[in-house]
Amino acid sequence: MKHHYQLTVTWTGNRGSGTSGYRDYDRDHAISAAGKPTIPGSSDPAFRGDATRWNPEELLVASASACHKLWYLHLCADAGIIVTAYEDAAAGTMHDDRFERIVLRPRVTIAAGDRELALQLHHVAHQKCYIANSVNFPILCEPSIV
C-alpha cells in the first residue's frame, strides 16, 4: 500500500540580501501542511541556526521515536498489555554529515499484562517501524517497564 505525504517548507531567513554571503542569511524556515500547526525550523546552532527552532536532525530523532511508540502501543493493545504512560528520552549521534545512530530509551508504565512480553514487543515494534527500515544507520532501543 502506498501513502503520500505533502507539506511545504518555506525559507523565512532572507535578511534583505538573500544568500549574498554565508553569514548574510538566517537558516529559519516554516514547515506547514494543511490543517496543522506550523513547525518553526532552522539548522542546528553549529550550522548557524536558531537554537529555539526545531532542526532536521532533531526532527529525524523525533520521527524515529514516534514511529516506534506508535507501533509499540498498537502491539500492546493487540496483546492485552495496558500501557498507561510512555516517555522516550531519545538521542541521536551525528558525525560530520551522517547519523551514526539513534538510541531510543522508552520508559513504559503498564497497568496489566505480561512484563516480559511488554519488553519483547519493543523488538517487534522496531522491526515494523518504517523509519528504522528506511535509514542506513542503527536505531537501538533500551526500554524499561514500570
Rank of each mutant, 00 (worst) to 15 (best):
R98V: 13
L59C: 07
A33F: 02
D96S: 14
A51V: 11
Y25M: 06
I131R: 03
C67V: 06
F137I: 03
R48K: 11
L119W: 05
G41S: 11
F47H: 13
L75H: 06
A90D: 07
D24C: 02
H123L: 09
D44I: 08
C129K: 04
L7M: 14
D88H: 04
T93K: 08
P45R: 11
H126E: 11
G18P: 01
D44S: 15
L140Q: 14
H4C: 05
R101W: 11
G16R: 12
E87D: 15
W71S: 00
D28H: 13
W11P: 05
G80E: 09
D26Q: 13
G21P: 00
A51L: 08
Y25K: 10
W11M: 05
F137L: 10
W71K: 07
I82F: 00
Y86E: 08
I139W: 00
R98Q: 15
Y86R: 11
I81A: 02
M94W: 07
V108Y: 02
L70G: 13
H95M: 00
I145V: 15
I145Q: 03
G16L: 12
N133D: 10
E57D: 09
T19K: 14
R48E: 08
D24H: 11
Q6M: 06
T8A: 10
P45C: 04
V61L: 04
G21C: 12
E87M: 05
A125I: 11
A89S: 07
I110P: 02
S43I: 03
H123T: 13
L70R: 05
D26I: 03
K36L: 14
Q6R: 15
L60W: 03
T109R: 15
V103Y: 02
G92A: 10
D26Y: 14
G18S: 07
